[in-house]
Computed example of a mutant assay.
Amino acid sequence: MSGLRRKVLWIVVIGLLVVGGILYATSFWKSGTSVKPPLPTVRVGTVTAEVKQSTYCWSDGGEAVCEDHGLPEADDLQLVPVEAGAEIDVEFHAEPSNASFHQLVDGELVPAEPVVPDEPGVYVFETGGDWPQGDSRYVFGVEVKE
């Protein structure tokens, strides 16, 4: 093999490795961000609350991702003003098994009914469940004005 052919062969091999590496990195980056459970819609009375993703393990198309989130502070959430005693309606993408609903009280999750308390204040809630793709928890906050 002549020197020129050897150089061309090496350039082709290196080019293929570079292109393959870029394609692999791009597909890994895209897939890492696409495996996430869909957010539910939460209506509190006539207002829609902003929902944040919390802890989850989710699989889709042979890929699985788990993320662990600590319990949020009220300052971490977009609080919506609501009426005292308003009903909370959580609409998931599909009905979960083992659905749960909690209120965050003094840093602890306490089982609760999906109703805003009657007293003025800031309230943080956590909800979620299990689906065939995995389990997921979601958080949102509301404020009852004086």
Rank of each mutant, 00 (worst) to 15 (best):
P72Q: 00
G129T: 06
A74I: 07
P117L: 00
E63F: 07
D118Q: 11
C66P: 00
P111V: 03
P72F: 01
F101E: 10
G62A: 04
D118S: 14
F125K: 01
E95G: 13
I88P: 03
E113Y: 12
I88S: 06
G121H: 05
S59Y: 04
G70E: 12
G128L: 06
Q53K: 11
S54C: 05
P117T: 07
Q133K: 09
L71R: 00
C66H: 02
G70P: 06
D89Y: 05
V110G: 03
V116E: 04
F92I: 08
V122K: 03
E83R: 10
A99R: 14
V124N: 03
E87T: 12
A94L: 05
Q103H: 05
W131F: 07
D135Q: 11
G45P: 01
H93K: 03
G85T: 06
E67R: 12
L77F: 03
S100K: 06
A49R: 02
V122Y: 02
V90A: 12
W58Y: 09
G134S: 06
L104H: 01
E87N: 11
S97I: 10
D118Y: 06
K52V: 13
S59N: 01
E63Q: 12
Y138V: 08
E83I: 12
E67K: 15
V90R: 06
V110I: 10
G121V: 07
E91K: 15
G62W: 06
V122P: 02
A49V: 08
V105R: 04
A64C: 14
Q53R: 15
P111Y: 00
K52D: 05
L109Q: 09
D60V: 01
Y56I: 00
H93V: 07
P81N: 10
S100Q: 11
D118G: 15
E95M: 15
D130V: 13
Q103W: 07
D106W: 08
E108D: 07
V82W: 09
K52N: 11
G85H: 06
F125N: 03
L79E: 03
V116M: 00
E73I: 10
G61D: 12
H69C: 06
F125E: 00
S59Q: 14
E126F: 05
V47E: 15
D76A: 11
K52S: 13
V122R: 11
E83Q: 14
P120E: 02
D135E: 15
G107Y: 09
C57T: 14
V65C: 00
E113R: 11
E113W: 06
Q53I: 10
D60M: 10
E87W: 02
Q103K: 05
L71H: 04
E95N: 13
E87Q: 13
P81D: 14
S59V: 12
E126Y: 11
Q103N: 02
S59L: 07
D89P: 03
C57M: 12
A99F: 12
G61M: 09
P117N: 01
G128Q: 04
V51M: 10
G134V: 04
E126L: 15
G61P: 13
L109S: 06
C66G: 04
G121I: 07
T127E: 10
I88K: 05
G121K: 12
E119V: 09
V110W: 09
V122E: 14
P117R: 01
P111C: 08
E67I: 11
E73C: 05
V105L: 02
V90E: 01
E91F: 10
E91N: 13
V124L: 03
